[in-house]
């Protein structure tokens, strides 16, 4: 679905100096896959995300989405329809003063005939569990609900892939739970490819694959079990493994025999009780 080869992206900062935000990224994302991207602040996660729907173009290397090269200007709108993007601040991505009007914004932009827009809006709101709020004013919703409206706005474009750039960073625990559950269900039930950027490691546990970034490079990747059992390496990159993985690692170091792939609380509890 998405194929990134030798991708480099350089910014020029305020002093005219070159910042190598991405310095040679190779990544293939399969259709229907759920990929989580983790990495310290400034490691280039947002820059990578913005290449996936042609908001940014590569300085070097290529990025193709569904076979379309993002560099070709003619592909831009097809790519943006295929790959939706959710941002961190729930307030600053909702355009209209009524939920359903906002969800209709995307289909209206690509010229979907009037009579087909309403069914799309209803389907999209149902997919994120916000049907009851169709007529509400967005500024009165909770953070988690606003993010779900933002996701519905993308679903109405019938995308193949949704990229979420730290969607839970400004939410309370309840809102975070809502978003993770929504994203999981879109992936499992609707087959939407998910690229999920987060700095909450527990959220990344839901992914099929976790990609670890540092200073514009991919350091390593694998299943959540493979990645989160490398507790010490993660720590060197400024990342904290889930608590259970850390505890298990400490216990192993002090001589207690535990399997290497413990990453959730349940697994830890089970292993300790044996």
């Amino acid at each position: 679905m998405i194929s990134i080869k030798g991708l480099k992206h350089y910014y020029t900062d305020a002093d005219g100096k070159e910042v190598k935000a991405l310095d040679g990224i190779d990544l293939d994302i399969k259709k229907g896959e759920f990929v989580a991207i983790i990495g310290a602040n400034g490691s280039g996660k947002s820059t990578l995300a913005r290449h996936l729907n042609a908001l940014l173009l590569p300085t070097e290397g290529t990025c193709t989405v569904g076979g379309l090269d993002t560099v070709e200007e003619a592909n831009m709108w097809d790519i943006r329809q295929q790959v939706g993007m959710v941002f961190q601040n729930p307030d600053n991505q909702i355009v209209a003063a009524i939920v359903e009007e906002d969800v209709a914004f995307g289909p209206e932009n690509i010229g979907v005939p009037s009579e087909e827009i309403r069914p799309r809006v209803e389907k999209a709101l149902a997919a994120v569990g916000m049907t009851d709020y169709a007529k509400h004013a967005p500024h009165l919703l909770s953070g988690g609900q606003k993010q779900r409206v933002a996701i519905a706005g993308l679903m109405a474009l019938e995308p193949d892939c949704i990229v979420l750039d730290e969607p839970t960073a400004m939410l309370d625990p309840q809102g975070r739970k809502e978003i993770v559950a929504t994203v999981k269900s879109l992936n499992k039930d609707k087959g939407i490819t998910i690229v999920y950027i987060t700095h909450y490691m527990t959220e990344a546990l839901a992914a099929d694959r976790v990609v670890v970034m540092e200073k514009g490079h991919i350091r390593f990747m694998g299943t959540p079990k493979e990645v989160f059992s490398r507790v010490d390496e993660l720590e060197k990159l400024g990342l904290e493994a889930p608590l259970a993985a850390k505890v298990a690692s400490e216990l192993r170091k002090s001589g207690i025999k535990l399997p290497k792939d413990i990453i959730t609380d349940e697994e830890l509890a089970q292993a300790l009780c044996q």
Partner: peptide
């Protein structure tokens, strides 16, 4: 941020736009 979000949602002015 809103401008970027709108672009991501395929907004490109009034040309060819439909309404619900």
């Amino acid at each position: 941020e809103l401008a970027i979000a709108m672009e991501s949602r395929c907004y490109r002015g009034g040309e060819g736009r439909t309404r619900m």
